[in-house]
């Protein structure tokens, strides 16, 4: 190590400061969800579970949560199927235009969300003649979730190679048997990791959702945004935010365990 002592000290202090700045705003949301004071006066005089109880009874928030969960699940299933198909096509075949296909997969998250949002909004209404609602949210979410599954599966396929599948075929297994007994077990945890990240991505999304949800469907982020500026709802919005912070940890933790390396988490986004 050639970085001098004083420099290391400075770097250590800066790292601690940056981590503090990253976590303090989130911790404040958590603490404030127990703050007795409705306007989050600081420091809190006392703590209460009242807001959590009221949030658990808030019909609007619960309905929105249920919509978000269903959208996330359906979009994830579609993304799993399509993402895996692209990953196999790109990894096991060489063909003209491979690079364009991988660019195409990334495009929905590389372009600003608002562009994807109004493009889909326009296409749904004027080209396809769909009514905006549950179905259109699912289509939009699946579109930008494909990339997380694709990234995880193609990384796994690159690592495992084709020898096991060739051995299976040499031993007389049909294509389907090989997939069921050899290929699928190899990619199962990559599918789970990619699926979890896809669900998390869908669950959080607000910009594309705003343009594809229509008037009758509210996902949880949209519910939060609609209630954010209502002073009356402030404590309940804060509880929902706090709950989301806590729950967002779970998919990351699980996906990290499954994929075994933390870096693949960043690649998904």
């Amino acid at each position: 190590m050639t970085i001098s002592g004083p420099t290391r000290m400075v770097l250590r202090i800066l790292t601690i400061v940056i981590l503090a700045i990253i976590y303090i705003p989130l911790l404040l949301v958590l603490v404030n969800s127990f703050n007795v004071n409705k306007t989050f006066a600081w420091p809190p005089r006392d703590f209460t579970l009242e807001w959590w109880r009221r949030a658990a009874e808030s019909q609007g928030a619960l309905d929105a949560l249920w919509v978000s969960v269903r959208v996330g699940l359906v979009a994830t299933v579609i993304a799993l199927v399509l993402g895996t198909m692209i990953a196999f096509a790109l990894q096991r075949f060489s063909f003209y235009g491979r690079d364009s296909v991988s660019l195409l997969v990334i495009l929905p998250i590389a372009l600003p969300g608002i562009v994807t949002g109004i493009a889909l909004n326009n296409a749904f209404r004027t080209i396809f003649g769909f009514e905006l609602g549950f179905g259109t949210i699912v289509i939009a979410h699946a579109t930008f979730c494909i990339v997380t599954v694709f990234n995880n599966v193609i990384a796994r396929l690159r690592r495992t190679g084709v020898h096991l599948e060739q051995a299976s075929a040499d031993l007389g297994a049909s294509g389907f048997t090989t997939f069921r007994l050899v290929t699928f077990p190899l990619i199962r945890s990559a599918l789970l990791a990619g699926g979890l990240l896809a669900f998390a991505l869908s669950f959080d999304e607000i910009i594309v959702t705003t343009f594809t949800a229509g008037a009758n469907q509210q996902t949880l982020p949209i519910w939060i945004f609609n209630n954010l500026f209502r002073p009356n709802q402030a404590p309940i919005v804060n509880v929902v935010a706090a709950a989301l912070i806590v729950f967002s940890v779970i998919p990351v933790w699980l996906a990290q365990k499954l994929s075994g390396d933390a870096e693949s988490l960043g690649a998904g986004r």
């Binding site: 989130l26 949301v29 990240l197 999304e205 607000i206 982020p221 967002s248 998919p251």
Partner: peptide
């Protein structure tokens, strides 16, 4: 971890 916490939150 915070990368996956909700944008809105």
């Amino acid at each position: 971890m915070p990368l996956w916490a909700s944008y809105l939150v």
